[in-house]
Amino acid sequence: MASVDLGKVLDKAWADKPLAEVLAAPVSALKGVSDRDGELLDEAFGVKTVADLADLKYVRWAQALAALDAAK
């Protein structure tokens, strides 16, 4: 799997945290995701943490579709 520059995907406050802490963090720890976005994700899908977002079936489905398209 490709490496990820955490400074590019996380807000500054989270970039130096251990991975387990980041996964347990609210989705607003992701760069570009506001507290309000996090509230809406929780309301719509029950997503509270970064790990919840990663495990959301709709995210996995979209990733699978994108991978299929990239493989053609």
Results as ranks from 00 to 15, higher is better:
Ala70Glu: 14
Leu65Val: 15
Lys31Tyr: 00
Ala71Ser: 13
Pro26Ser: 11
Leu53Ser: 05
Val33Leu: 13
Gly32Thr: 01
Leu53Trp: 03
Trp14Phe: 13
Lys57Thr: 05
Asp5Val: 15
Tyr58Cys: 04
Leu68Ile: 09
Asp5Pro: 13
Tyr58Arg: 02
Ala64Trp: 08
Gly46Ile: 02
Ala66Gln: 13
Lys48Cys: 00
Trp14Gly: 01
Ala29Ser: 11
Ala70Cys: 11
Gly32Leu: 05
Val27Arg: 01
Ala24Trp: 08
Lys12Ser: 14
Gly38Asp: 09
Leu41Ser: 02
Ala15Gln: 11
Gln63Pro: 00
Val27Trp: 03
Val50Ile: 10
Ala2His: 15
Leu23Met: 12
Ala54Tyr: 04
Ala20Gln: 14
Leu19Gln: 12
Gly38Phe: 03
Ala44Tyr: 03
Lys12His: 12
Ala25Val: 03
Phe45Asn: 10
Met1Thr: 07
Lys72Val: 08
Lys8Asn: 12
Lys72Tyr: 08
Trp14Asn: 03
Leu23Trp: 05
Ala25Arg: 00
Asp35Ser: 10
Ala54Gln: 09
Gly7Asn: 13
Val9Cys: 11
Asp55Ile: 00
Ala20Met: 13
Asp55His: 02
Ala70Ser: 13
Tyr58Ser: 04
Glu43Asp: 14
Arg36Lys: 14
Gly7Ile: 02
Val9Gly: 02
Asp55Arg: 01
Leu53Tyr: 04
Lys72Ser: 12
Leu23Ser: 04
Arg60Trp: 01
Ala67Phe: 09
Asp35Cys: 03
Leu6His: 07
Glu21Phe: 05
Ala51Ile: 05
Lys57Glu: 02
Gly46Tyr: 00
Trp61Lys: 04
Ala29Phe: 07
Leu41Gly: 00
Leu19Met: 13
Lys31Gly: 01
Asp11Tyr: 07
Ala67Met: 06
Asp11Arg: 13
Lys17Cys: 03
Ala54Val: 06
Lys17Thr: 02
Ala24His: 08
Asp11Trp: 08
Val27Met: 03
Arg36Asn: 09
Val59Cys: 03
Leu10Cys: 11
